[in-house]
């Protein structure tokens, strides 16, 4: 009688490698994009928010802030790029949270894929969403009479800068998404973070009429630097190098601190 043994475990390379990671992130990004396609309502914020904000601020506050609406358009719309990127970035955590609520994440976690792939794919899909949002914002702005005083290269640079900043904030959002219990809680906290940041900045109004303590806040608020940089890029006036530097330093710091925390948290939940 012969009793077979199980085949000895294959001695194999357990590292996933760059090509593998690329393939996994690609497949998962495709999933995230297909989810958007299946649930177009999830694009409402990306599509409508830039339009609503533009209309609201230009026509409601524009005259009061800048004396006339045309001047205000040139002032505020560049700043909205940064605001849009930030808001979309904060929405990532909500999506991640709901993945954890369903069994989908368990399925991914029993597959032999790198732990960062799931997070990176969220980032990639989010970039697509943000890009669409930027195109809509700039397109709509042009329709209502916004003028790019520089050239296409500067537009790309402004969008790129907002994107870089937004992507660094995605890590914070993911961390929130994994730390908090429900998607609603994530949304609530995201709102609490967003509100003071976007309004306590130079996006919507020049800061020189604000009280001193608030001016201090707006000065360190990276959204002010981002707004100033975009303004300089699109209007061709004002300092450029300094605000760009500030944004890049903030983005690098934010990524350096929160990316490892988010990945560690993701590992811990697995």
């Amino acid at each position: 009688m012969t009793t077979a043994t199980i085949a000895p475990a294959r001695v194999e390379d357990t590292r996933i490698g760059l090509a593998g990671t690329f393939r996994h992130v690609g497949a998962l990004t495709r999933r995230n994009l297909m989810r958007i396609k299946a649930d177009p309502e999830s694009m409402f914020d990306a599509v409508l928010m830039p339009i609503i904000f533009t209309v609201l601020f230009v026509y409601v506050f524009g005259g009061a802030v800048s004396g006339n609406q045309d001047a205000y358009k040139q002032y505020m719309i560049p700043g909205l790029l940064g605001q849009t990127g930030l808001t979309l970035a904060m929405a990532v955590g909500t999506g991640l949270n709901s993945d954890f609520q369903t069994g989908v994440m368990d399925r991914f976690r029993t597959l032999p894929i790198g732990r960062a792939s799931v997070l990176l794919s969220k980032m990639a899909a989010e970039t697509c969403r943000a890009l669409l949002s930027f195109v809509i914002l700039i397109g709509f702005a042009l329709c209502i009479g916004f003028e790019v005083k520089t050239g296409p290269l500067e537009v790309v640079a402004a969008v790129g800068l907002s994107l870089v900043f937004g992507m660094s904030v995605v890590w914070v959002s993911m961390l929130l998404g994994m730390a908090l219990r429900s998607a609603q809680a994530v949304q609530g906290v995201a709102m609490l973070v967003l509100m003071p940041l976007q309004f306590g900045s130079s996006i919507f109004a020049p800061t020189n009429t604000m009280p001193g303590w608030l001016q201090t806040f707006t000065k360190v608020n990276p959204l002010s630097a981002l707004a100033d940089a975009s303004r300089s890029l699109l209007n061709g006036e004002g300092p450029l190098a300094h605000p760009v530097m500030v944004v890049l330093v903030w983005s690098a710091a934010c990524t350096a601190i929160f990316a490892p925390l988010a990945v560690a948290r993701f590992r811990k939940r697995t």
Binding site: R31, M34, R35, A38, T102, G103, V104, D106, R107, T110
Partner: peptide
Amino acid sequence: IGLTGQYASVDELL
């Protein structure tokens, strides 16, 4: 391994 958990782990939107 392959796992079919107690709770469905398919992506509902896909």
